[in-house]
Design a protein around this nucleic acid. Structure first.
Lengths: 193, 193
DNA sequence: AAAAACCGTTGACAAATGTCAACGGTTTTG
DNA sequence: CAAAACCGTTGACATTTGTCAACGGTTTTT
């Protein structure tokens, strides 16, 4: 179960983890199984764990006043499920995170993560690179959202994230793109021609 | 000129910078003056510097096929102007960054920044916290963009960033929000009632 | 001081997207 | 196995937002 995480960290770090470091990681990350639809984080709760997804698929979303869900992020293997705002500020989250498929996840508290960062340089390195990548990805998504039509946004998304298209139903993709399922359905119909 | 930067770093770090560290920072960051409209980064170029804004205002935008500008970020004092994708990947940027007002800025190359991070713990700390804040801010902006109407987006923005409203003309704010200047004009007219 | 560029606003109209209701075909649940 | 929930699609229509052109009042440039 922890092997995927070790591999993942080594990918980001400049030198591979030592055996001691690996042992520490295995001891720190707590495995958990989530059933489909099970909450990882519920609106109003403080996000106490970050979760590394070993197997499965999850989603993060907000529910507006009318009860409509808005997908903020989609996660699959090798993604980290987390509401950073809540977990760093210790404020109640406005988001829900739940399992879309049965999911195997490795949990770590913020305190433990900070501890690991102090003890294992590779972890710090990984975090920095992840943040960097994340900032870049967010920049792209924002850019796409403010400058493209819904059709182009879908095209780009489908090209850059085919795994998500296969894994999640259309209405979640639509919500992620900020449009309704009906609009996405029509866009796809158009595109075929 | 460098004092603002020192203060800024100390704000983020857990212990204040030593005199040696301060001297190193002063020696590394290169001051530059930008006239209004002067480019800091031009589309197609690789972003070689990150710039800490001491005084002034800048904007980052993309120009689409039709020649329309889309504001991706707005910067004022104590912000960092930078295209992270270009400067970390060393790829040509798709963005322009230019001065909206006459601006005083402190330049640092990526290599120098990495060097500083190795030598000054406070810098590393600052970067991590900045990344964290940045990730949170981006999350919020994305959430707002996909789940709110243009009107609510403007309201939220005006509430959370009054400095920007005062500093930049309406058509830049509109572009930043992903709407046209005409739509923003009408939204504001509505809101007065 | 005159000319040019910039800025916000408005009107008329077009295009994009949302809303609501309904349907049939799946998949999941009890 | 039957019932319920889920999913994507479609039609009719409403709403939001964009487009284009024009205007008058700034501010900036020459």
């Amino acid at each position: 179960m922890h092997q995927n995480l070790i591999t993942y960290i080594n990918q980001y770090a400049s030198s591979p983890l030592t055996n001691e470091e690996q042992a520490l990681i295995v001891a720190t990350f707590q495995p958990k199984k989530l059933r489909k639809k099970q909450y990882f984080l519920q609106e109003g709760d403080v996000c106490k764990y970050a979760g590394f997804i070993v197997k499965g698929a999850m989603r993060q979303y907000r529910v507006d006043e009318k009860g409509v869900e808005h997908m903020v992020q989609l996660f699959i293997e090798n993604y980290w499920a987390n509401d950073r705002e809540s977990s760093t500020m210790l404020t109640p989250s406005i988001y829900n995170i739940d399992a879309w498929e049965d999911t195997d996840i490795l949990l770590v508290t913020r305190a433990d993560m900070l501890d690991l960062m102090a003890k294992i340089p590779s972890i710090t390195e990984m975090i920095r690179l992840m943040d960097e990548r994340n900032a870049i990805a967010n920049q792209r998504r924002l850019n796409s959202t403010i400058s493209n039509t819904a059709e182009k946004r879908y095209e780009e998304f489908a090209k850059n994230h085919p795994q998500f298209i296969q894994r999640f139903p259309q209405h979640l993709i639509a919500s992620f793109l900020g449009i309704t399922k009906e609009t996405l359905s029509r866009i796809r119909k158009q595109a075929i021609k």
